[in-house]
Simulated assay, not measured.
Amino acid sequence: MDEAKWYVVHTYSGYENKVKVDIEKTVVNRNLEDQILEVVVPLETVVEVKNGSKKSAQKKMFPGYVLINMVMNDDSWYVVRNTRGVTGFVGPGSKPVPLTPTEIKALGIALPGSENENKPVVKFDGKVGDQVMILTGAWEDTVGEITGINEGKQCLTINVEMFGRETPVEIGFTDVKLM
């Protein structure tokens, strides 16, 4: 028996969860649990900060795609390829190509056997030049102007007044509210 690998399957947009459920049902019905091990629709928790209030929601990381951990053979390929809503495997021509561990890590998905953590992503609705009030820490209740937004680190650079002059301070998205 070959080793199971992660493959990417393209689906019609909006059909990801239906494809996942249909494949899982077919696996049970055809007794293929040892060939198709797991079907995943990668989700990320997105936290939006609007006027100081936080709202979190689950969003698909890759709309139109499903990840499948499977042993590639004729039976497993046939089941996945002929599931309603599946348009094909990702790879050149009709040949499915498994994801490498490096690719899985780069995608930032927490899959079994990967070292990625599933951290929530925070979205901030402010822009450079907006005034914000700092809600926590040493700068609590201080008002400053946004001079930079770093989505990767999920923080802002804010100019605050200290000793009579403007000083840049880095602070997290969730530690401020727009004025």
Results as ranks from 00 to 15, higher is better:
65 Y>P: 03
30 R>Y: 12
83 T>S: 13
67 L>C: 00
105 K>I: 04
33 E>L: 11
166 E>Y: 12
19 V>Y: 06
4 A>Q: 10
71 V>H: 00
42 P>E: 04
74 D>V: 13
150 N>Y: 14
157 T>V: 06
95 K>C: 09
156 L>K: 03
2 D>F: 07
111 L>W: 11
125 D>Q: 04
34 D>I: 04
122 V>H: 05
4 A>P: 15
105 K>G: 03
74 D>Y: 13
91 G>K: 09
123 K>I: 09
69 N>R: 15
114 S>W: 07
89 F>V: 02
143 V>N: 07
139 W>G: 01
178 L>W: 00
43 L>P: 00
1 M>K: 10
138 A>L: 08
14 G>P: 00
160 V>D: 06
45 T>H: 08
98 P>A: 07
148 G>F: 12
88 G>K: 08
96 P>G: 05
121 V>L: 14
24 E>K: 05
13 S>L: 10
76 S>A: 15
159 N>L: 13
4 A>G: 13
7 Y>H: 06
58 Q>T: 00
68 I>G: 02
86 V>I: 12
173 F>T: 11
9 V>F: 02
104 I>Q: 12
4 A>F: 10
101 P>C: 10
131 Q>A: 10
39 V>S: 03
179 M>H: 06
106 A>P: 02
31 N>H: 14
175 D>K: 06
86 V>G: 05
109 I>P: 01
171 I>T: 09
118 N>K: 14
122 V>Y: 12
114 S>P: 08
176 V>L: 08
61 M>L: 10
82 N>C: 02
30 R>P: 01
130 D>K: 12
15 Y>F: 14
42 P>Q: 04
147 T>P: 04
152 G>I: 14
35 Q>M: 08
168 P>V: 06
95 K>S: 14
81 R>H: 07
122 V>A: 08
93 G>S: 11
160 V>T: 11
86 V>S: 07
115 E>V: 05
80 V>A: 07
59 K>F: 13
8 V>S: 08
140 E>F: 07
101 P>G: 12
33 E>W: 05
60 K>T: 03
153 K>D: 08
6 W>N: 04
66 V>G: 03
11 T>I: 13
67 L>P: 00
105 K>V: 04
168 P>N: 07
78 Y>A: 10
138 A>P: 00
119 K>I: 11
172 G>V: 03
48 E>R: 15
74 D>A: 14
160 V>I: 15
119 K>G: 03
116 N>I: 15
112 P>Q: 11
51 N>T: 00
15 Y>P: 00
90 V>L: 15
121 V>H: 14
139 W>P: 00
140 E>P: 01
39 V>K: 01
47 V>L: 12
117 E>K: 15
144 G>A: 07
31 N>D: 14
65 Y>C: 05
90 V>W: 08
44 E>H: 12
8 V>P: 02
30 R>A: 03
171 I>G: 02
175 D>H: 08
25 K>L: 07
100 T>I: 09
151 E>W: 09
172 G>Q: 11
76 S>I: 07
135 L>C: 10
37 L>F: 04
153 K>L: 11
124 F>S: 08
